[in-house]
Amino acid sequence: MSHKGKTADRFRYSDVVLMLFSIGLLIMIGSFFGGRDTQSRAPARELVSSLGLSDLALFTEARYLRHLSQADLHSAFQDHPVSFDHFPGGSLVMPRLIGITEGVDHENMD
């Protein structure tokens, strides 16, 4: 609180608040336009296409988590396709429903 300012405030709460809000709103709106940086993905994309990678290395504790899209339909979820898995990572990702509900591979599998 100003003790000296005689006729003018040193600052007004509203100015501070409105400025902070403007910054916050600008950050929020600015964040909507953040995804234009494609340069940073170039090395990963290059590896994916040259090595023929098919999965993210996000979970490494089990093969069916590491190679989610390549996993056997039932290996991860032995008892039931949507039962919980005993690996923590397995409780985060979805079992592959492709081939169970639709897709070209299942019809010709049996």
């Binding site: 090395p43 990963a44 290395a57």
Partner: peptide, 11 residues
């Protein structure tokens, strides 16, 4: 490269 780690970390 570390930039590609999301797909290559454990390779």
């Amino acid at each position: 490269s570390t930039e590609s780690e999301l797909v290559s970390s454990d390779l």
